[in-house]
Design a protein around this nucleic acid. Sequence first.
DNA 1: GATCCTCGAGTTCT
DNA 2: CTCGAGGATC
Length: 673
Amino acid sequence: MADLLAEHAEALRRRLEDWSYQYYVLDAPTVSDAHYDAAFGELQRLEAEHPGLLRSDSPTQRVGAAPLPEFAQVAHAVPMLSLSNAFSVAEVHAFDQRVRDGLGRDLVRYATEPKFDGLAISLVYENGLFVQGATRGDGTHGEDVTANLRTVRAIPLRLRGDPVPARLTVRGEVLMFKRDFALLNERQVANGDKTFANPRNAAAGSLRQLDPRVTAGRRLRFFAYGIAESPAQHGLDSHSAVLDWLRDLGLPVCAERRVAVGAPGLLDYFAHIGALRPSLPFELDGVVYKVDSLTDQQRLGFIARAPRFALAHKYPAEEANTEVLAIDVQVGRTGALTPVARLRPVSVGGVTVSNATLHNEDELRRKDIRVGDHVVVRRAGDVIPEVVTFIAAQRPAQAEPYRMPTRCPVCDSAVVRLPDEAVARCSGGLFCPAQRKQALVHFASRRAMDIEGLGEKLVEQLVDAGLADTPAGLYRLQLDQLVALDRMGERSARNLLDALDRSRSASLDRLIFALGIRNVGETTARDLARRFGSIAALTEASEEALLQVRDIGPVVAWSIRQFFDEPHNRAVVHALLAAGLHCVPSAAEPLNELAPLRGKTFVLTGSLPALTRDEATALIEAAGGKVIGSVSRKTSFVVAGAEPGSKLARALELGVPVIDEQQLRALAAPLQG
DNA sequence: GATCCTCGAGTTCT
DNA sequence: CTCGAGGATC
């Protein structure tokens, strides 16, 4: 009976181990979580009822150890080295050159792998059992985090295969997947705990918990990338063979590793991983190149504390630390007050960042950024920099929470924040010079009246000089008035007048959009132009008539009616018509029965090889399709180019078909015959 | 009343 | 690109 039970327990343990192995090492789960949990529960029950069956390598022993008073120090028998870094193509060539010189060879084979952005650790296995795990520390001494590492399911408690080495020290990285990081932060917010700035901090914080039960609740991952002992002992002669062997022993090894030849091969790999980066489940800060042959590695040896046979080639940092010099408030076209952090300029992701939006009062309060704070700035896959968090340890004692102004910093009008709205607004309307300026900038912008040469700087001058207060004023500008302005010669002045003249015949949808009516953007403007046909008809349209338009509800109808009821706005519209604007709706395309993309919606992400975003949009619309901004279940296709953003991931998640430019052209091409 | 889909608005730097 | 919010739909 006891034997039967022992056999059953062992079978359960094996099965649970196999499932973890399939999940973490083979990256091919074979059972559901519920299934796993059921078997796990059964084993737990069995072991509780028959303590004699308990074994230290049982999956049930990953959780539940008592908190430690502190971590013990561990000496690394073989030191954990660091790697030399490279940031440029030239440095990679120089590295390859040094290696070739050192070996007296023309072409060198390298093992290449991602450089994870996590924590380096060392795992000791004796006779196949996990006995000790430690952090890197200073390279020679680290902290004993065995109890915490036991809770990491990707780390096998028992090696697979037969025979297993008597002693093996595995080197690798503990990290947190982006997805698990996001979930953790959500949970932290829900519990009122502080959030982590990035997956690496979250992994570090989780691993250095004195209470292993906390670590167990965090989903940490592990990838092995080497061993401390001489691989020759195990009959291995290359780094890639070591990794294959580790995988056979049941240790997770990154699937993105390759073998590359020569500097061009290395740079190819760097570009390949760079393109893959946004879609990988984990963060990485670069890639690692290692001479593959172990005898060659030995011949090259070490310099100082880094091997001469390896190089970390890093991507430009997506994150940097800097200081908040000031928090200013900008006033937008609609009067929205936007707090902006002025930063000590810092290089992030290859560009210098000196400003970052703090969005609005709620966001600012949530992040609690203060003047004088040291902050983490991120410029990830997307382009726009973001202040992620402040660094508590470096907060100056006198720093005070930021308070939004109660009066507009530009015109001193009262600031109002409507209940249920996130934004605070200046109530000054067009009395506020900032709003007037922004209204003009919007009017002239490319998607509106497209007045070339009329940008922010020039608008600033015109308004300050009192030359133009409203869009209508622009059309009364004279050559001599313009030439009197700074940095404006006769040539530029004539160009501007020409551009203004061209805009007199812009399409009606552009004009409606250009007026800057609240809640009326490009799409709504186009719908309005189609329905009403002239600016005069729109001016007189009743709320009931407006509500008839598709996608216009009470709020938007009210905004439009409100706009045209304002005498000042009516005056501007009249003045525009008097100035000779003769806008007509762009001919509604005959909705051809044969339009190949009729009723289809598209989302664009990344940069396409031959088409710009606008060209791709035009192509789709010409074929009767529609381009929208975000992916949903109803989206027909996602068109992905180079360096796609999160929309690609979302498309894959929702099972929306993903196509490239080539396929888009094929779809949009008129049907033959 | 809840949920999903779109649109609008604001934003950085070269 | 992301958020917030309007509108439509169940």
